[in-house]
Simulated scan of single mutants.
Amino acid sequence: MTDDHTFPTSLGTSDADTIMLMGHNVATDLMGKVGFGELAFWMVAQRRPTAGEVRLFEAVLVSLADHGFTPTAIAARMTYYSAPDSIQGAIAAGLLGGGSRFLGVTEDTGGFLHRVLADLSDDTTGWSEDRWDALALDVVTRTKAAGQFVPGIGHPVHKNGDPRVPVIFSIADEEAVLGPHLKLFAAIGRAHHQVLGRSLPLNGAGVAGAALADLGLPVTMLRGFSLLARTAGLVGQIAEEQRTPIAPAIYNAVDRNATFVAPEPAN
């Protein structure tokens, strides 16, 4: 009995002599000729990005790679301490912490902006800053009235401004890829205080989501790019843990200072 099933793919295939990726020979067409960031963009978007798009995309990846001893980094280091024979487990532990508070904001912001723009009937090409501000004010007002939060604003550390934000805007402008998602995000930064009663900085994860959405990448994949960037950071964290470990001190500090508290009686 023959099996005539086929499994279509636009990505990788191979035979005894060649490895093909997106219709190109990996050995002769891609290796040494295509950067890793460009390749990652190409594989997801199914189109080769321009040089300007690559510059913005890779700037976003760099901005998300590492941010110090975040929970994701600590989780990776602690897992490596527990299972040094399983580096993949340590990396996975760090990636599993990429959620609504860390890394997931990129996806949340890109999706939020994308939904707002998708609901517009007007072409935003040529909109003035005042018109963007009016849209942003309406969006923030409606979001607050619904009891929801606008993603991408505020930061627990960079309360006076996230240093990554102006760089992303500048690169996007220089490369002529500053689109409606970034313009709306900038307008939210200018207008939100009128509704919230306080000024919060735009954060790096949020501007990353806006930039990735402007590059035409699927908003459902934006967290994937955050995780791709953070993977590099986690590899660096584990390498440093091998050289100068801190996980034993974290473990001892928590374990030796654990205090028993009797549970309260159930009602």
Rank of each mutant, 00 (worst) to 15 (best):
G32W: 06
N25I: 01
L184K: 01
A40T: 15
D138Y: 00
G233R: 00
D15A: 04
G204I: 13
T79Y: 03
A249W: 10
M43A: 15
G179D: 01
I246G: 07
G197P: 01
V62S: 04
G110D: 01
G52I: 13
A258S: 04
Q88H: 07
P8A: 12
G37Q: 01
D123R: 06
E241C: 05
R55N: 08
S128I: 05
L96V: 14
L228K: 04
D3M: 06
G161A: 12
V105K: 09
P49Y: 02
A208C: 00
E241Y: 05
N25Y: 01
L95H: 07
H67S: 03
V105N: 10
A249M: 08
V150K: 10
T220W: 05
L135E: 11
R55I: 07
N252E: 14
L64M: 15
R142G: 10
R48G: 03
I168R: 00
A239E: 14
G110C: 06
G197R: 11
R223L: 14
D133T: 10
A208H: 00
N25A: 06
R164E: 09
Y80T: 01
L184M: 01
V207Y: 04
G209N: 08
A76R: 07
N252L: 11
L61I: 15
P71T: 12
G154T: 08
V157D: 11
R142M: 03
L200I: 02
K183V: 00
R243W: 06
L30K: 06
M78W: 07
G97Q: 03
A258L: 08
A211F: 06
Y81T: 09
R115I: 05
L61E: 00
H192E: 06
D119M: 14
A232H: 05
D122A: 15
W132I: 11
K183M: 10
N25W: 03
F112G: 04
V235Y: 13
L137E: 14
G209Y: 08
I238N: 02
L120K: 12
A93F: 04
A90W: 08
A16Y: 02
G147C: 05
S82H: 06
E264Q: 15
S86D: 15
G97I: 00
G12M: 11
L120W: 07
T141E: 02
L234Q: 02
R101L: 13
F36Q: 12
L120H: 05
I246N: 09
D17Q: 13
A59E: 12
Q194S: 03
R230P: 07
D138K: 13
E264I: 14
R131I: 05
L184F: 01
T50D: 07
L103N: 04
L56A: 09
G32L: 08
D17A: 11
A249H: 10
V140E: 10
R131T: 10
V195W: 10
A16S: 10
F260H: 13
V261G: 04
G197E: 02
G52P: 10
G161Y: 12
L113V: 08
L212G: 01
N160H: 12
A51L: 14
A187G: 07
E175D: 11
T13Y: 07
T231N: 14
L217R: 13
P180M: 06
D15P: 02
F36A: 15
M78N: 14
T6W: 06
E129M: 09
